[in-house]
């Protein structure tokens, strides 16, 4: 299968300057990330605050400039030609890219301009890319597709509930028939019953339109439900990456194990001993030496604080970054 987007050692660093403008250090928000997103799949990125998942998404979109490494677009995304490097795109190229990738953000309240009508909001991508023909009809279709009443085109966002607003955001993301959607915590601000509606909708749309999803979340049960492959991020690096089922049934990296054990189980008979980590989530401005996870790791050894473990393929399709996993 061809790939849609591939990153090679992608890094996005933000400098911290001291009083006098000298560089004190770097916030390595994304630090050498390799992922491959295949066509038609849902790729999940999981992690806690400060792990860099949002920055990764923004870098892939070109909203953030990468410091080193590259993001490569597959032939599907480059309109038939061979692969292109995002860093080499000029402004027109970047605009094309934006046409092909739709974005859904977390906060449905803030993602919609409160002064614009729903119709203008959904049609905005079409206006930007100069595809104004039949805009209104298309907007109505999109509303129908996401399960909203097409007569509500002429309403303001505040007249809708949270779940409905998120549907409007999804409709807007699909306005230009993108090939890929990046969803950054799309259901975190929603209630459980509404969340399930949105997740079902997303799955439907993926089947109907053959979309590829990049799904970012901190909620492991949602990731498990939605994704084919999952990457776990910690302080800018990927610590484990494999197929979703494998990751959840048999996590290899100690951090993943802690995360997975933290998923609450509703079946009281299934309650197992939780792995409770010590200490706080460290700040990406000052990561620990060696393996970033070693201060909190229950099985850390002396070597772990010295050398950083590279991401290695343990089994077919399973990658882990830990010295102690064989």
């Amino acid at each position: 299968m061809s790939f849609m987007v591939k990153t090679k050692l992608l890094a996005t660093h933000f400098p911290i300057q001291d009083f006098f403008g000298r560089e004190l250090g770097l916030v390595k928000a994304v630090d050498g990330v390799n992922i491959t997103i295949t066509e038609g799949s849902t790729f999940g990125i999981v992690g806690e605050s400060g792990c860099g998942k949002t920055t990764l998404a923004r870098t892939i979109l070109g909203l953030e400039k990468s410091t080193s490494g590259s993001t490569i677009l597959g032939s599907e995304m480059s309109e038939g030609t061979e692969e292109t490097n995002i860093e080499e795109l000029d402004r027109a190229g970047l605009r094309e890219l934006r046409r092909m990738i739709g974005v859904v953000f977390q906060d449905p309240m803030g993602a919609l301009n409160p002064r614009m009508l729903v119709k203008d909001l959904i049609c905005e991508p079409m206006v930007i890319h100069n595809q104004k023909e039949g805009m209104r009809e298309r907007a109505k279709e999109l509303l129908k597709m996401v399960g909203l009443n097409p007569d509500h085109l002429y309403r303001y966002p505040h007249q809708f509930s949270g779940g409905q607003r998120q549907r409007i955001v999804i409709a807007r993301a699909l306005a230009l028939e993108p090939k890929m959607l990046i969803l950054d915590e799309p259901t975190s601000a929603l209630d459980v019953s509404v969340q399930s509606q949105i997740l079902n909708l997303l799955k439907d749309l993926q089947k109907k339109m053959g979309l590829t999803y990049v799904f970012i979340s901190h909620d492991l049960s949602v990731i498990r439900h939605m994704c084919d492959r999952v990457a776990v991020m910690y302080l800018g690096k990927i610590v484990e990456e494999s197929e979703a089922e494998t990751l959840f049934s048999n996590p290899l990296h100690p951090y993943t194990q802690a995360l997975v054990s933290a998923i609450p189980s509703l079946d009281p008979k299934m309650r197992r001993e939780r792995i409770v980590l010590e200490g706080d989530v460290p700040s990406p401005a000052d990561p620990p030496s060696g393996c970033h996870f070693h201060p909190r790791c229950p099985i850390a050894e002396a070597n772990c604080s010295q050398v950083y473990p590279d991401l290695r393929e343990i089994k077919k399709g399973c990658h882990t970054a830990c010295h102690l996993v064989k």
Binding site: L61, R98, V103, G110, A111, N113, R115, E124, P125, I128
Partner: peptide, 26 residues
């Protein structure tokens, strides 16, 4: 810095559009 301005930029809007359609009216 608001999310909807980000969203518009992510959709490829030019600075001109962002200012006149999003920032100024608000």
């Amino acid at each position: 810095k608001l999310p909807y301005v980000e969203a518009a930029r992510a959709a490829g809007a030019s600075d001109f559009r962002l200012i006149f359609v999003h920032v100024l009216p608000n």
